[in-house]
Amino acid sequence: MSAQTQSVGKKSGREFPKHLAIWLILGLELLPFYMMLQISLKDNPTFIANTWLPSLPRDWVWGNFLHAGKLILPFVANSIVVSVSGTVGCLFLALLGAYFFARYRMPFSQILWGLFLLLMLLPGIANIVTLFALLKTMNLLNTLWALIILAISGGQVFCIYVLRNFIEEIPRDLFEAAEMDGASHFAQLLNVVIPMSGPIIGTLAILQFLGSWNDFLMPLIILRDPELFTIGVGLIYLDGEYVKQWGQIMAAFFLASVPLIIIFLFTMKLFVRGLSSGAVKG
């Protein structure tokens, strides 16, 4: 389905109306983003006087960002720790697991595979209630560990599922050559599998990262101390303020998006690819 295979000139009709229609939808879609940016540089009275248009650069209230930064950056830091550790841990373990399933058909591996596949079917909707009780008995409430472990375990099934198919398609000679050199399985994973599956790992990483970054229900019931809050809880608390300085709030919203913006800028392709395959997850 790569673009090169499409022949040129297969489509007809004038291009301009299509572009116009696309931009119209995109414009509406990006409206919240635009509002966030332009309000983040206003104070309340300016905003009431002028809702839609950005204010002049000389009137920009940079103080909003200063204030919002103080408020939200600690949450961003916690979120980065949770999401990065969760993603790395998840992919590392999933690679090991997928390697196990893909390399040999070991005794019991069919049964174990069945156990994993079954979880693709079972919805986790009721789990939030009992997970809470479980974390309580494990003494993990009000820790970032709980969130990291949940991120790692939550991604296992899907990642192993995708990675297994991928590893199975790596030519067998590569493994055999490595084995001849006396490489252990772990060394094979490191030297054969990982270099060969860079893009799919990147894709999965982005999906896991997004999932963990956007989560707020688990953090909301797990975390108690404000110094542990991740972005999700932090924003909910921010929304609960009575006196709302919208400029500051929007600035905080923007700062909460910055890490994702950076990742997006540098890994645009993986992002696009990752989301296309995201639907397999179900």
């Binding site: 990065v84 990147g202 890490p259 950076i262 990742i263 800028l265 540098f266 890994t267 645009m268 993986l270």
Partner: peptide
Amino acid sequence: VLNGIGLGLL
């Protein structure tokens, strides 16, 4: 290179 920079920043 871009992916590398992004990863590095992260």
